[in-house]
Design a protein around this nucleic acid. Structure first.
Lengths: 370, 370
DNA sequence: TTGTAAGCGTTATCAT
DNA sequence: ATGATAACGCTTACAA
């Protein structure tokens, strides 16, 4: 009922109503000086008109959108969900919004996402590439804004921040754990082998076997996609070929779920006949029966660190926008990265794996003789 | 190496290089007319400079951002993940990006999300409120852009598009199914009861019992949060109070997972001693042991419909931006909504529930006599 | 302290 | 067909 309703008020509307210039309006609204009565007039007018600043106009001027993009293969994977949660939390605390970009595990989509930075609808990006191709590296180097890579190590030549899990160590940890439980014929159900995760898990599996003094038998490995069904079928093949296996390391929790199903169908008890260990320690591990032992690769922590790294590169939130004064993070980003906003040297973080032991791998009375 | 490197090229840079005006550059780049050689010059210059249009500037001019916001309680819930996937797919096909907003189940956050529309960093919003409060309704009515509500029915008075699952019917369906399996003492593990989902599931439970000709015994209901742990504890209380129960309907899959755990700990076989049915049919249902019978409330479908509704309100993507010509949807939005872009009358969709029967509820030789 | 005016990078109008 | 120019809504020198 006040003024011409319908169109959203702008600073110009306010200026007119308050009888001052748009510059004064802007200043008052941004908390910069102003004579008391000017402040009053502007504040009142803004209040009365229900004024809300236009983020787009502000972005155009400020050359930053207060948005970051998280690009991953598919939000359906629990690992990415954990990352999104962590990223979202950090971003919100810093006054940033999070844009989602699903690449559907398509390399061209990954490249497109990176190129998208040039459109400047987001200030930076956290990317989870499945493979590190030359094209990806080239695009990373030419990126129009800061990028933090989670997962694949883009080689030491590319100066790009990245956070990764030590999945080689994590895999070895899982295998050693199974060996400690008395397993002597430990099989491995891997996912797609020419991806970064696939390869490092295979490496870790072998390393774990060697550490446990067990031979590496190629017949004990099967591969598929990183999904439940593939895990189930791969396990069938494995059982057919090596009926004597007594332990199984699965490259992720989804695969492990399929493995459990197949073992049950085959009448093998878990962990009695076959001890099983998964990876990623997603919520599915607890839901499974028996509860699944799994290696926590720190998905949340990786998301949190990646967000901190990116936000650090972006510098302090411009003007208003950041609701909370402090960061949402529990632990800070290491000194190597802190306060180096805009630094040219890439920061590399490595998150330590942690074994979460549950019933699927614990054999009573097992262990080395004693 | 060409021109002053560093700063991103704008149409002005191109205009200078091509020796034409910025107006011509804009026209050519947007596929509007132009003399062949002008087109050539501009295209070449743009190519050479690696020009990418600035989305923010475009948004300011076009008064639309090509972004939509999805606001839900917590992306950690598999139900929302399913919705995000569907929304993302539709949005991408229509040339829109998706902004995530977690409200952490906080009513004030929901209100803030709605108010955020006035900042115009997104063109519209899909909201999943947990409760329909007067404040929420007021905010919905005053929303600065189109909103589609998923879940709670904001009353027939509020003219806002919304998509909901028929969870009353779905719950009744679950209970009738358990009754058909021979259950006579069917318990109910509900989530928070003063939320929209909590209330409708309770209604459906009672309706199902009546339909099956079973009495409604208040002692057979327990409540908690919608989480695994709460489900486990609520089931313990239920077992203590009604040791003779032979069926359990759980308000969602997370609760059901907790229920399964408690039953196992109590030495009750599933479905032999107690048949169990969950709700939402998330990926967890398949992962559980025994595989969990669950009512599919069409999370993906609701997400898809909500996105279609919203995108329809927003009208066709402005100028360039939409990659695929067609929609990603399998089935179209009903005629009631199609082509009514900008219509003042609210569209209401109801998604039919579907029972997904798995081992947790199937008793061999059960059924009515026969 | 306050106002005028110049951008930020586009699109679109209107003469030419 | 093309070019000058005015928006879009805001921030920020620079002047007054």
């Amino acid at each position: 009922m006040t003024g011409s309703a319908g169109a959203r008020p702008t600073i110009e509307t306010i200026a007119a109503r308050a009888g001052v210039s748009i510059a004064s309006v802007s200043r008052v609204l941004n908390g910069l000086g102003g004579r008391p009565d000017t402040v009053r007039k502007v504040t009142d007018a803004a209040e009365a008109l229900g004024y809300v600043p236009n983020a787009v106009a502000r972005s155009l001027k400020a050359r930053r959108t207060q948005q970051i993009t998280f690009a991953m293969a598919d939000i359906g994977n629990p690992v990415y969900v954990a990352m999104v949660r962590a990223i979202q939390r950090e971003a919100k605390a810093a006054g940033y919004r999070v844009l989602l970009h699903s690449t559907d595990a398509d390399i061209d989509e990954e490249l497109a996402a990176l190129r998208g930075l040039a459109h400047r609808h987001s200030d930076g990006m956290i990317l989870c590439p499945l493979r590190i191709t030359p094209a990806l590296v080239a695009e990373l180097e030419a990126a129009a804004g800061p990028v933090v890579v989670i997962g694949g190590a883009p080689g030491d030549t590319v100066p790009v921040d990245h956070v990764r899990a030590d999945s080689v160590a994590g895999s070895a940890m899982a295998v050693r754990h199974l060996a400690e439980q008395g397993c002597r014929r430990i099989g491995f159900v891997n996912g797609v082998v020419d991806t970064v995760p696939g390869r490092s898990r295979a490496d870790g599996y072998r390393r774990g076997l060697r550490a446990a003094g067990l031979p590496v038998d190629p017949d004990l490995t099967e591969v598929g996609e990183f999904q439940i069904e593939d895990g189930a079928r791969a396990t069938e093949r494995l059982l057919a070929r090596a009926p004597d296996l007594d332990g199984l390391f699965c490259a992720n929790d989804l695969i492990a779920l399929g493995t459990l199903r197949t073992l049950r169908a085959a009448g093998r008890s878990v962990p009695g006949d076959v001890a099983v260990c998964g990876m990623d320690d997603t919520e599915l591990a607890e839901a499974a029966w028996p509860p699944l032992t799994s290696v926590d690769l720190g998905s949340s922590e990786r998301g949190r660190l990646a967000a901190r790294l990116l936000l650090d590169r972006l510098g302090p939130a411009s003007a208003s926008g950041a609701p909370a004064p402090g960061s949402a993070s529990g632990a800070p980003v290491p000194a190597s990265a802190a306060g180096t906003s805009g630094s040219a040297v890439a920061v590399r973080e490595l998150v330590e794996p942690r074994l979460c032991v549950r019933a699927s791998s614990v054999r009573t009375g097992a262990g080395e003789g004693r």
